[in-house]
């Protein structure tokens, strides 16, 4: 017993170091797996409030560019509005079935991140605004990510610039689809893998969401093809996509809720069980 105590006293520095280093390692490993970083995230009460108050100051810096963005979007929406009205005159639209597919909430990014390999954003809307896990997040130019966790007033977003993120996407001109992944290098480019070799890919083609995941509706723009090559198996293309979104400059975003998620998921579950 005496010797054990002596041992502990002699190596107390090393033991403390080992103990704390193991704690840090555990947190790191936990944060690398999806949906498990329970309390080390910036959507909690203390850090969320802190970022919010600093955000009040920093948002003045880029008011101009954000105003331009909003004006541009207003114009696009107005375009859409007038086009629909003119359509109403000539054709019949089944409003009962299509108007209530998606609900859109607006939110602001209070903490952006794009330089590390697993980027997570914080938004100023949470459970109180009926935001839940697994809703899609987009900006006026393209997709941003998926809601990962929510607290009462804040929510954290798993950015597309995260090496653990997987989002289904397709070519705009044909229906060949693949998976979007990020390799942790540049915030301007993202990689689209598993596109069949038979697909007619050209530099300059537009990439959109495929609507297969029930998180994002089909047809949200992502980026254009910058470069492409065959992967190691030579059966699929690896496409380098240049994002429309400037992920380093985000402010106003929209959260999209698919009102039929439950229905789709239960149907898929039933089919899988049979």
């Amino acid at each position: 017993m005496q010797q054990i105590i002596n041992f502990i006293i002699r190596f107390k520095n090393f033991l403390l170091f080992l103990f704390l280093f193991c704690i840090a390692l555990t947190f790191t490993i936990l944060s690398h797996s999806y949906h498990t970083s329970k309390f080390i995230n910036s959507a909690n009460f203390f850090t969320g409030g802190f970022y919010k108050s600093f955000h009040h100051i920093s948002r003045y810096m880029n008011l101009n560019s954000q105003n331009d963005l909003l004006a541009e979007e207003n114009r696009a929406l107005r375009d859409l509005l007038y086009n629909t009205e003119s359509l109403d005159d000539s054709t019949y639209i089944d409003t009962a079935s299509y108007k209530n597919d998606y609900r859109v909430y607006s939110a602001q990014v209070i903490k952006n991140s794009y330089s590390i390999t697993n980027n997570i954003l914080t938004l100023n809307k949470g459970k109180k605004d009926s935001i839940q896990q697994d809703l899609g997040v987009i900006s006026s130019k393209g997709i941003i990510g998926i809601i990962e966790k929510t607290s009462a007033n804040y929510s954290s977003v798993l950015s597309i610039l995260n090496t653990t993120s997987r989002i289904s996407a397709q070519l705009k001109k044909t229906n060949h689809f693949g998976t979007l992944v990020w390799e942790g290098v540049s915030p301007e480019y993202i990689k689209l893998i598993d596109i069949p070799k038979i697909a007619p890919v050209q530099p300059g083609d537009t990439i959109i969401t495929s609507g297969r995941s029930s998180i994002f509706p089909k047809g949200i723009q992502i980026g254009i093809v910058n470069d492409f090559k065959l992967d190691q198996t030579e059966n699929y293309y690896e496409v380098q996509v240049k994002l429309f979104n400037d992920m380093t400059d985000l402010e106003h975003v929209y959260i999209i809720e698919n009102l039929h998620t439950e229905e789709i998921k239960s149907l898929q579950r039933e089919s899988a069980d049979e």
Binding site: F27, T28, S31, S42, N44, S113, I116, S156
Partner: peptide, 9 residues
Amino acid sequence: DIFQDSGGI
């Protein structure tokens, strides 16, 4: 780490 959402790095 808590501010940067980076686990324990």
